[in-house]
Amino acid sequence: MIVRIMGEGQVKLDDVHFTELNELDDDLLREVESGDEAGFRRTLSTLLDAVRRLGTPLPDDALEPSELILPADEATLEEVRELLGDDGLIPG
């Protein structure tokens, strides 16, 4: 799966990593819904770090369609709230 982190670029992630990422996404969804700013900041950072660590960066000139788009580290709670679906940022 190709994942884009807004403002950074794209990484290729193997599907095997989505269990770990979905757990973080579930935490993030709860924190956004409850307005827990500190928890939101911590979990968003942890989620993005996991994507960077587990994924393989694509070259800057690669223009692959992104199957998943994640907010940048500096995204606000309100901005992420607008991006969330019923399942969070990561479907499944």
Results as ranks from 00 to 15, higher is better:
L13V: 05
I69W: 02
F40K: 08
D61I: 13
F40C: 13
G92N: 06
R52V: 09
D27N: 07
R30H: 03
L48D: 13
P91C: 04
E64T: 10
D73Y: 12
I2T: 13
D61W: 02
L47H: 06
D15C: 05
R81L: 10
P59N: 13
L89K: 10
P59W: 15
P59R: 14
F40S: 12
T56D: 12
A72F: 14
I2Y: 13
E74N: 15
L48I: 14
S66P: 04
R81H: 14
F18D: 02
E20M: 01
G92I: 00
R52Q: 04
L77A: 04
T19F: 06
T56F: 02
V51D: 09
E74A: 12
E64G: 01
V3M: 14
E79T: 15
A72M: 03
I5V: 11
E78R: 02
D60W: 06
D73T: 15
V16R: 08
E74G: 08
S34P: 00
G88S: 04
G92S: 03
A50T: 07
L29F: 13
H17Q: 01
R41N: 14
L48P: 11
G85F: 08
L24C: 01
L47I: 11
R4V: 04
L29D: 03
E33A: 06
T46D: 08
T46M: 04
G35D: 05
L47A: 06
E31V: 09
L47E: 00
D25M: 03
L21N: 02
G9S: 05
L48Q: 10
T19D: 00
T43S: 07
P71D: 15
D73C: 10
E37R: 15
